[in-house]
Amino acid sequence: MVGVVAGSRNSLAICEDGRLHTWGWNQQGTLGHPPETKTESTPSQVQALENVKIVQATIGGCSDVNG
């Protein structure tokens, strides 16, 4: 691992080869994975970025848009 970032509901890790893995709360696909699962407890690669070398990433906090 090159870096790990933790947010309020999800986390990400960047591997030495630039692959991005995410896990945690996946409501509406916030992890970059299909939204079929609402929570992912195991890190998995973001397939949409599999041909992109990630060197830095960040995660935002949770915002309750419903009040």
Results as ranks from 00 to 15, higher is better:
L20W: 01
V65M: 10
S41Y: 05
V65F: 15
E16Y: 13
T37M: 08
L20H: 01
D64T: 11
A48S: 10
T37L: 15
V46F: 05
C62V: 09
R19V: 05
R19S: 14
P34R: 09
C15E: 10
E36P: 14
G24E: 03
T22I: 06
Q45S: 08
L49N: 04
G61I: 11
I54K: 07
E16K: 12
Q56F: 05
D17W: 04
W25K: 04
E36V: 09
A48I: 06
L49P: 04
A48T: 10
S8K: 10
N51F: 05
S11V: 01
R9C: 07
I14Q: 02
V65W: 15
C62P: 01
V2F: 00
S8Y: 05
M1Q: 04
I59L: 11
S11M: 05
H21D: 04
G67V: 12
H33I: 02
G29P: 03
G67Q: 09
I59K: 05
C62I: 03
E50V: 12
R9N: 10
T58Q: 02
G18R: 03
V52G: 07
G61W: 13
L49Q: 13
T58K: 05
G7Y: 06
D17Q: 05
D17K: 06
R19L: 08
T58P: 00
A6W: 06
C15Q: 15
T22G: 03
E36G: 08
N26G: 07
E16T: 12
D64N: 13
V5E: 09
Q47K: 15
P34V: 07
A57Y: 01
V55F: 14
W23N: 03
G32P: 02
V2S: 12
T58D: 12
P35D: 07
